[in-house]
Write a protein that binds this DNA or RNA. Sequence first.
DNA 1: TCATTTTTGTTGCATTTGCAACAGTTTTTT
DNA 2: AAAAAACTGTTGCAAATGCAACAAAAATGA
Lengths: 209, 209
Amino acid sequence: MDTNFDKKIFIQNFKNSCNKIQIKKFVKGETVTTYIEKRNQICIVLSGEVDLIRYDLNGNKTIIGHFVDNDVFGEVFYPANTNNELFAVARKNSEVIFYNYNFISNKCRRNCEFHKELSNSLSQLFLEQIVSLNLRIELLTKKNIRSKILSYFNALSKNNLRRTFTLPYSYTDLADFLSVDRSAMMRELKFLIDDGFIKKRGTKITLLY
Amino acid sequence: MDTNFDKKIFIQNFKNSCNKIQIKKFVKGETVTTYIEKRNQICIVLSGEVDLIRYDLNGNKTIIGHFVDNDVFGEVFYPANTNNELFAVARKNSEVIFYNYNFISNKCRRNCEFHKELSNSLSQLFLEQIVSLNLRIELLTKKNIRSKILSYFNALSKNNLRRTFTLPYSYTDLADFLSVDRSAMMRELKFLIDDGFIKKRGTKITLLY
DNA sequence: TCATTTTTGTTGCATTTGCAACAGTTTTTT
DNA sequence: AAAAAACTGTTGCAAATGCAACAAAAATGA
């Protein structure tokens, strides 16, 4: 099941078609958007990587989401009355499409290609987003650090079709993603190595079981 | 932002239109479907309540999802290579629509109303699903039981527009949903009462802050 | 209505996890 | 090339959480 979303068509059609849609570029570390109020903003990553970050009242940082090519994110996906402020931050130089969700169901006045293409692709993009959120929930509902790590490594391994793979995160960020303390995670990784479950070289992991 | 999905139209059109779609009834406790292989099945709750449950190798039960009116669920939303077996079980007597996701993008041969209606509503349903998954992730990434409970209670309170509300779960299931030990959660609830944060009568909660 | 099953409430104890702190690397910036 | 910042690896200790177990209450169902 492949996405029908074709970036080339998208970008080509952009200039002379829909004025409801914006494409912006961001350099690494730049804030892409903040989730302040319910503007029904929807965003799609065209290139690069974007993290969705929460800072709670104590200043603790959590990576809530991590978006790459064709991933959708934005205010529209969050409950209106959340207390936390969320920030979308470019992890790498990135290109992002912005528009308002309301304009999807309604046809664009000019009935542009851009708009049509987007509407058609949207449920597919949403579906893929749901899949990745469900995977995340799978991990987060595991009861201890060890099984969180192993589940995640399994997923990566199956994605790569290899027992060896490279983490898409630094260990600091991996801990954030799994929502566990970094030092506790490092300790558990050590145990996993000692127990012969995994091998680890930098961020390159090999499963041994 | 309201869903355009109208159940009445749906069910009326059902009988004499699309043969790709099934509606089934389930009694409480019955298994609605199991997530065994990737059949691209998609399900929508028409009435009642359905839980998505995982049993891990040790027999521990976790409620992965809880679906009510208009919620979508099904294999299509899960990564193909998950180790766990998932079960969708009717928590109450329920009515559920089944069909195969592939038939959405392709037009139904007969081009039936049913099918059209569904396609139009689908991205809206997906969107709502993403919102609820994101809320869940918000809760699960909180670092301690207290903040998980409080975040969840806040969400319920805001949903109801009241400081008092009734939990949609038993406490046993709430612990499952928050992915914490039940006794630890009960202990924390007691602390919250002692500290004057909440009042609790059965499954009826009042926020005091 | 009575018996059975499920849920609630509670506790002591063991284990896991988070926190704080720091030194050594690596990466980034100037 | 030097300085600053971020990341890795490690540890002792405190606190939070899970586990096991059980009695009481409530819900279910025969």
